[in-house]
Amino acid sequence: MNKNDALILQSAELSPQAAQWSRTFDYLIIVVGAFLVWSVTYISQLLLAGDWDFFIDWKDRQYWVLITPTVTIMMAAGFQAIFWKLFRLPIGATASLLLFLVGVWIVRYHSWYGMAYFPLSLVIPGTCLMSAIALDAILVLSRSWLITGMIGATLYGLLFYPSNWVAIAGYFQPVEHMGSMASVADMIGYIYPRSGTPEYIRIIERGTLRTFADHAIWVSAFFSGFVCVFSYYIFWFIGSFACNPKFVAVGTRFKSAFGGSGKPAAAGESA
């Protein structure tokens, strides 16, 4: 425990005994929080942008780069709001994306590889972890969700593509197959068949491309940063709303089940 920690306990007016109980409580909440952040982030991302994350042959320039950050920043913002507003802890986004990444790799091994025989190269995930760290760091530096939303969320969208390109660029080398060109990623998707997933249901770039200097990805990344700003604010508010410690009154019949106490709720109502 350093001097600052001591000052915090002093300011909180906690006795050593209370501080010890409180630290036990901290550990328990870290565990509950980890499971909660992990699962809520996962179920949110899984069913809003899962397909792009599952398969290497869904990681396109148009939608993957746009949708993945837009979706992952939702829970990053929601949990950031909860931890920041209540405890001034700037860890919500990082925790959300780190636990999600850990979970993703577990599932890629146990399920895609372990049950359905798919090679891991088909199911390389993307990650917004670097974006999330930047988002938390900017929250610390600015102490403001408004500024974090403007600058941090834009950066969140912009960082996604380059921080993933370092990991997956090799999958986009050109290959010749049956007389036409394909990327290595296309080939992996083609070679390892998914009976329930025909090629045409890929929601990927298929249309026209009219952009300056062929920099299609950066157009998507920039747009992604723009959408992330709104996604961030919306979910910051949802996270804030979720922190409302409201109790509503119960009826007398319910009260009588516990000894008929007619007192108002002890905690929370005034907060």
Partner: peptide
């Protein structure tokens, strides 16, 4: 949310 949730994707996309 995570373990069997994405496992469901494995099954139904396969």
């Amino acid at each position: 949310a995570s373990f069997f949730g994405e496992g469901d994707a494995t099954w139904h996309q396969t």
